[in-house]
């Protein structure tokens, strides 16, 4: 049920259908791993049932004080991660333009040299002993969020003979219904690698790619400390229940 202190009436309308021409299709052969991991048969379409309309909620109590500070949440006392210090902030909205409050955001990334803290990453760029690479936060009443980190570096990956990922931060987002569940990646304004990347290139519409590029936001910088990037995330909107026909079958 509602989180304590919330006076919002829960919404129960069905979610807008996903525009699968806007999202990358399952099979994008330029991104080689998709070839054997993409379904070939048609998806089964149906209007949301309660199983998709409902979704888990996460209380603010689960968030630790440093969960949204990647510069310090893995660092030794008195130390901090190496790299270009940045604030990433924005809002989680839905397709009606309404802020999504109480949304859990999780993010992960490589360090400033493009190296991930993961045993499967064998890139020769070194680990930063003060950087783990994970963080999380929950959006406020207006859907806003912010975290502090270092700008990740680009890194090479075994796809084509000389493919490099643009600098990016992975985002995982929960809305209010499980049908809104989304994982995406944020890129940085002006990075020339964006338009050469086969993973980005799976998205066919240029405007859709641009929706994943965070803008440099000088108004939100901290002078003599950190630059800032603004990145809004849009989740599926939902229909009003005004004209729903007994959605719960009661």
């Amino acid at each position: 049920m509602s989180e304590p202190g919330s006076n919002r009436t829960p919404e129960t309308g069905a979610f807008f259908q996903r525009d699968r021409q806007w999202h990358p299709p399952a099979l994008t052969p330029g991104y080689k791993s998709s070839v054997l991991r993409s379904p070939q048969k048609a998806l089964l379409s149906f209007d949301n049932t309660l199983s998709e309309l409902t979704g888990p909620v996460f209380g603010h109590a689960m968030i630790g004080e440093r969960d949204n500070d990647l510069i310090h949440n893995f660092a030794m006392p008195g130390e901090s991660a190496i790299g270009e210090r940045i604030i990433v902030h924005g809002r989680v909205l839905d397709e009606r333009g309404i802020g999504v409050p109480g949304a859990l955001l999780e993010f992960w990334q490589a360090n400033a040299g493009g190296r991930y803290r993961h045993k499967k990453d064998g890139y020769l760029a070194p680990l930063d002993p003060n950087f783990g690479g994970c963080g999380r936060t929950i959006t406020g009443e207006d859907g806003s969020y912010a975290f502090r980190t270092v700008r990740p570096g680009p890194y090479p990956w075994p796809n084509g003979p000389n493919d490099w990922r643009p600098a990016h931060i992975h985002f995982s987002v929960f809305g209010h219904g499980f049908a809104q569940r989304l994982i995406t990646q944020m890129y940085f304004e002006g990075d020339p690698l964006i338009w050469r990347c086969p993973i980005v290139g799976g998205i066919r519409d240029k405007a859709a790619v641009e929706a994943l590029i965070a803008a440099l936001d000088m108004q939100s910088t901290i002078p003599m400390d950190a630059l800032a990037y603004k990145f809004d995330i849009v989740l599926r909107g939902r229909r009003s229940t005004l004209f729903e026909n007994r959605p719960e079958g009661n």
């Binding site: 807008f16 996903r18 525009d19 806007w22 999202h23 990358p24 991104y31 791993s33 998709s34 909205l93 397709e95 009606r96 333009g97 992975h170 989304l182 994982i183 995406t184 990646q185 993973i199 980005v200 799976g202 998205i203 405007a207 859709a208 790619v209 929706a211 994943l212 995330i233 849009v234 989740l235 599926r236 909107g237």
Partner: peptide
């Protein structure tokens, strides 16, 4: 309307 953020792997 704003469009849903496109997914990425």
């Amino acid at each position: 309307r704003p469009k849903e953020s496109p997914s990425q792997t």
